[in-house]
Design a protein around this nucleic acid. Structure first.
Lengths: 153, 153
DNA sequence: CTCCTTGCAAATTGTTTGCATACCT
DNA sequence: AGGTATGCAAACAATTTGCAAGGAG
C-alpha cells in the first residue's frame, strides 16, 4: 500500500518534469524505502539494487540519488566520514514530521540518532525574520559519547 | 592583545600534547583568526599563508587544520559544496557563545548566516537524556531564499 | 521517431600518505 | 641528539562527466 504510494509520487513528479520512469529509478527508490531509517551511501544502494538489477551502473545510482533528492523524495545527510548518505524522505514517511538529529562522537566515531521537534519553532521564526523558506534541515552535535567520556586519556 | 592570546592558547595545547610550535602552525592559526567569520577552505588558507610563508605545502595546511580542529581551536563546517571549511573557533571568539547557523538556498546556492542561541537548551537536554557530552554542533537549513522564491519555474 | 537515460570508462577533485629532509626542544 | 614536522609527489576515494547505445513516451 504505502509502497505503491511513494512509487506513484515518483512517477507523478517525473512526469511533471518531462522525465522518464525507468526501472532503475524505481529500484533505487524501492531500496531506500525498504531501508527506512538507515543512512545509505551510494555504494550501499548500488549493492542492493544490483541484486534485482545486475546491469545497473554506479553512476546511474549517483545520478538517481541526486534526482530523488532534488524532487524531495529522499533526504541527504553528511556524517563527515567522507561520503554522503541518503535516506527515504522524512516527508514521505507519513507519521509525524519525524525530526531526528545526530550525535557524533569525536573519539569513537559512533553516530547516535536523537529525536526532537524543537526546530519547528525555529523554522517558523526564520521564515518570518528572513523570508527564507525552509524545506529541510540537518543538525549534528559533536562531542563525546557516554562510553568515551569514561576512558579519559 | 587578543591575537597573542589565541597564539598562547595554541602553544599551551601543543606543549600539553608533546607537539611542537612551528612557524606554519602559528601562521595557519593567524590567518584563520584574521578572517574570523569567514568559512575558509584548506585551499583558501593555503593561499593566504603562502604570502607570509611561501614554502609551505598544501598537505601541511590540511594537517594543521585537522590538528587545530582536534584541539578545539577552530570549527569545521560542511556547506555541501564539496569541500570542508574552517573558521576560528567559537570558543575563542570571546564574546557570547555566538551560535550561528546556515541557511542554504537550494536554487542559487547562497549561504546565509543566521544567529540564534536556541540550541543551548537542547544541548543540556541531550546531556541529561543520553550522557553524550556536546562540544559543538552544526545546524543547516535547506530551502529557498527570498529572491529564489519569487522566480518560480 | 525523438529525447531522455544508461553503462562504461576516463576524468576530476578534495584530501591523505610515504618518505627523506629540516626543525623544535 | 631524538623525535616531531614539513614539503613534495604519488596515492586515494568519492563523485562526475563524455559518449555511444538503449529505452520510454
Amino acid at each position: 500500500m504505502e509502497q505503491k504510494k511513494t512509487e506513484d509520487l515518483l512517477k507523478e513528479k517525473l512526469k511533471e518534469k518531462g522525465l522518464k520512469v525507468t526501472h532503475q529509478r524505481l529500484q533505487v527508490l524501492s531500496v531506500l524505502e525498504q531501508n527506512s531509517g538507515v543512512h545509505m551511501t551510494a555504494e550501499d544502494v548500488y549493492e542492493l539494487v544490483s541484486q534485482e538489477c545486475p546491469e545497473i551502473g554506479l553512476a546511474t545510482v549517483y545520478r538517481t540519488l541526486q534526482l530523488l533528492w532534488e524532487i524531495q523524495l529522499v533526504d541527504r545527510i553528511n556524517l563527515d566520514d567522507g561520503c554522503v548518505r541518503y535516506e527515504i524522505g522524512h516527508l514521505i514517511k507519513g507519521d509525524a514530521k519525524h525530526n531526528h538529529h545526530h550525535l557524533i562522537c569525536r573519539a569513537c566515531g559512533r553516530v547516535i540518532p536523537f529525536a526532537d521537534d524543537l526546530l519547528d519553532d525555529l523554522e517558523h521564526h526564520i521564515e518570518e525574520a528572513t523570508g527564507f523558506h525552509v524545506l529541510d534541515h540537518e543538525l549534528k552535535f559533536y562531542g563525546l559519547c557516554r562510553e568515551c567520556r569514561g576512558k579519559k586519556a
